[in-house]
């Protein structure tokens, strides 16, 4: 017993240190460097000279119209897009459990529905680009059926098109989570509710949805984080264009840091964006808990 106890105190550090070392070198140390550089004006393509500007970069980002409108676009793209994914995913999951009795068929259908989620965002974006270019498959089919072609990548529609692709790919995640939550509700609850003569609508409102609230909040959180995090679809489908019509904050960040090489400015922007994102997440989480 004594031996086991002393083992407990001695062993862990060599188990912890290598992973922590990796994280510190590749993630945390560069982040600290990013804080340092965000107080400087530095464009390595022009000169190696770094000029100290204090919080000037931060103030400039907060007044940058292009950044602010990118944030607005994110609100539309992520807010609306993820809400649709969540609602659609929940409805499909409930329909799956309600209308498909055979467990074998149900699993097969579920696996088919999860397919888009497993592939790279870049691949999904390429697949859809083939469908939505001006002479792409969808327009070809529309013309063939006698409709006029739609400018899926035109200024007014481009962001919505990307949002549809995101819905296509990622409704699978809330669907999976809602499905798991639904089948974990004890069947006895439904039986006794039916015995009491409760209507389907009442069962849905009083049993199913309350049980699924926390998993669905988690699903929303996971999806929201991923949808503002990734720029793959924008990068491949429209490259931010036409103009700046599909420029989300992450893509503007990419442009600033890797096309215009305004490294200090980009670092400041990434901190502001990260801060906004984290505050939004915490607020949402508090809200989800309190409702």
């Amino acid at each position: 017993m004594f031996q086991a106890k002393s083992r407990k105190i001695k062993t862990p550090y060599y188990l912890i240190l290598p992973p922590q070392f990796l994280i510190w070198v590749v993630v945390i140390f560069p982040l600290i460097w990013a804080v340092y550089i965000s107080f400087h004006d530095w464009n390595p393509t022009i000169s190696p000279q770094r000029t100290f500007v204090g919080i000037g970069n931060y103030l400039a980002v907060l007044r940058d119209i292009r950044f602010l409108s990118a944030l607005g676009r994110m609100l539309y793209y992520s807010g609306l897009g993820v809400t649709i994914q969540l609602v659609l995913g929940t409805v499909i999951a409930l329909a799956l459990v309600e209308y498909i009795r055979s467990p074998r068929i149900r699993t097969t259908v579920l696996v088919l529905f999860l397919l888009p989620m497993m592939m790279a965002e870049a691949v999904a974006a390429q697949m859809w680009t083939l469908l939505i270019t001006d002479t792409g498959t969808i327009n070809n089919i529309l013309v063939w059926l006698g409709f006029s072609p739609v400018g899926w990548r035109a200024k007014e529609l481009a962001l919505t098109t990307i949002m549809i692709v995101d819905i296509w790919q990622w409704t699978a995640l809330p669907l999976l989570i809602a499905y798991a939550a639904r089948i974990s509700i004890p069947e006895g609850l439904y039986e006794s509710a039916r015995l009491d003569g409760a209507s389907k609508w009442l069962i849905l409102r009083r049993i199913t949805l309350p049980y699924m609230r926390v998993p669905l909040a988690i699903a929303f959180l996971l999806r929201f984080m991923d949808s503002y995090k990734f720029l793959d679809k924008v990068f491949i489908m429209t490259y931010g264009g036409p103009g700046t019509a599909t420029e989300l904050p992450t893509f503007y960040l990419y442009q600033t840091a890797f096309s215009y090489f305004k490294v200090g400015y980009g670092a400041a922007m990434s901190w502001i964006f990260g801060f906004i994102a984290i505050v939004a997440m915490f607020l949402f989480w508090r809200l989800a808990k309190s409702v």
């Binding site: 993630v27 560069p30 982040l31 460097w33 503002y228 990734f230 720029l231 960040l253 990419y254 994102a277």
Partner: peptide, 21 residues
């Protein structure tokens, strides 16, 4: 905390310093 930051922060924000590293 490591986990949370890595998950919440957009990769492009990490990539700026990592690229220069």
């Amino acid at each position: 905390f490591n986990l949370l930051t890595v998950r919440m922060f957009p990769p492009i924000a990490f990539l700026l310093p990592i690229f220069w590293l």
